[in-house]
Design a binder for these strands. Sequence first.
DNA 1: GGATTCAGTTTTAGCGTTCCAAAGCCGTTG
DNA 2: CAACGGCTTTGGAACGCTAAAACTGAATCC
Lengths: 353, 353
Amino acid sequence: MPRSSKNSSAKGGPVTLAMVAARAGVSAQTVSNAINSPDILRPDTLERVRRAIDEMGYRPSRAAQTLRTRSSKLIGYGIQPTPPGTGAAVMDRFLHALSQAVDEAGYRILLFASPPGSPSLKGYEELLAQHEVDGFVLSGTDRSDPRQAWLTKRGVPFVGFGRMWSGRPVGDWVDVDGASGTDAAVEHLVTLGHRKIAFLGWERGSSGAGDDRAEGWLRAMKRHGLPTRGRRGQSMNDIDAARAAVKPLLDAGATAVIAASDMLALGCYQTLRERGALPGRDVAVVGFDDSPTAEILSPALTSVAQPLEEVGQECVRLLLARIAAPDAPPERILLQPSLVIRDSTTSMSITDE
Amino acid sequence: MPRSSKNSSAKGGPVTLAMVAARAGVSAQTVSNAINSPDILRPDTLERVRRAIDEMGYRPSRAAQTLRTRSSKLIGYGIQPTPPGTGAAVMDRFLHALSQAVDEAGYRILLFASPPGSPSLKGYEELLAQHEVDGFVLSGTDRSDPRQAWLTKRGVPFVGFGRMWSGRPVGDWVDVDGASGTDAAVEHLVTLGHRKIAFLGWERGSSGAGDDRAEGWLRAMKRHGLPTRGRRGQSMNDIDAARAAVKPLLDAGATAVIAASDMLALGCYQTLRERGALPGRDVAVVGFDDSPTAEILSPALTSVAQPLEEVGQECVRLLLARIAAPDAPPERILLQPSLVIRDSTTSMSITDE
DNA sequence: GGATTCAGTTTTAGCGTTCCAAAGCCGTTG
DNA sequence: CAACGGCTTTGGAACGCTAAAACTGAATCC
């Protein structure tokens, strides 16, 4: 086997199209065709070229391809520093899913640091100007997030993980149906016999996703004819605030609490402990996000899990479709979360009053 | 202000060197020089060219630069799926720090998905062959990790976050001095009056970092003439295993436990709770990694924090140095962690026997 | 039998940048 | 006054690839 000189071997520089062509006794273009449109070659030529490619370990140079085709096969993703206490794990898992999905499509993720605080356009501008990326994946979209409008205006392909809550929707996005998740949580608790089910969320209007989760609880409660007055607590995104915010709910006799995040659920755990009550036995608790902490807690926390792998795949699918057809109508995808049931909502006896 | 046509505007394609040159009334090469070696231009020419660049919003095309200079200014980083329960947050924060540091040096991170399980060379091979990256940052280096040797053999620049524990060290790395962290934890506990200080770690030999952390505890204990026999517990990387493994340590009368990770510390919390003891009041607990969970727990967990921002910066520094001087002697950097003191080790009364 | 088609291949012409060698400028110098 | 040197600037050429046009030779048509 004459693997004479592998690509990127110490000496002699990389193997180029021309070298392969010389070896196979064809022109450079034919080698290019063997790779990009094999079906137009005569079978025996194709075979000969393929052998030469294998023997020389040829891989096309991405830089040259990018320059020629004006497509870098790179997707930009700006990582923001995850605020402490928030589900870093959610973004971590999403990023991995994304990277996997992108790889399978022959693309790669180009990471750039978004400065902390409000998402700035700086990094996006830079990447675009230098023609480094073919599109962007946005995450952590918020109200007053300027990115979607900005990117749309210049016709840059992008997908958001998360709906655009402000104004009328712009561009493609993939999101998880939070309302459906909290709705399912209510169903689960009702099946277990609960009727005084409280919701512990963030301040109304502070986050689109938060309002969405509250909405699901609300509609499910109404559907069952259960009271929601005085059962809704609001807290900042902070463990101690959550601890305090859950108190009036418990005082009002709630036997179950659905929280808008695992962290808020944790605040609930702590208040219960202070009062000598045990989550799961005395009061049922449901979290949101199914963070690693959820299964580590004791008792393990029932939580609404987001299908992050699927979100990643759909993001890539939509983005590539947008790159292929810039003027196609926008597509939006809402995925269903699933309720992961653990000890914090089971094996307890409801003693109404 | 005549910002006639901004770069990447809808019509007309990108602004090129030649266009700027035409406008400034110089040759393309001179524009290139204005950017890459401004000092060789006559001041007035430089000024004229700079104005043209600004007016036209010119940014050089990375693809063309890469093709010409054979340097992509891209650093490869393979993300592995973070096993559940492990500190996803550590890798998340590291990645952010890395990306930030890399940006500041004019480079970017190219992400690729490493398949789960043992680190494979597949992705690295691919990226290299296509000349997509100038170097790699490795993380999660393990015993029997083939990557360092493989990359070294082909002369590819790389830095590891984490020592290479197997065999003799290869290449550059940056790591955190885990032993020093556990050593500091012992010091802290001794100052508080503890003498029966146990260590809860992973199985001996299963992880280099784990053994390192155990070592620091051991040496500090010896330095203070404190007994270590029967004070060392071993557990798998699993919360329930940790729960069980800490029992004999508590039974032997330990008043403090230093854990090799926050998750192991959490197992310790749970066992203490089962026994009606309160971490921090009855038994001091120290974790490792200062994960977000640490400050969220109640009582908040004292933990050894890794200086991840600094690790990221040093990784970049070393990698760029290696790229600049491939044959320079390897450099290794050991950074000091810091002990973040919280409620789990304070405000308690030691009642020795 | 010459014009027409067509699959299969090669030639030409860049993509936008930087390297290299050489040319232009201008004030000194023998 | 021609030759010289340092300082700037310039004109190719090349990096490795692919789109598009041009070219083969054989099969097909009227």
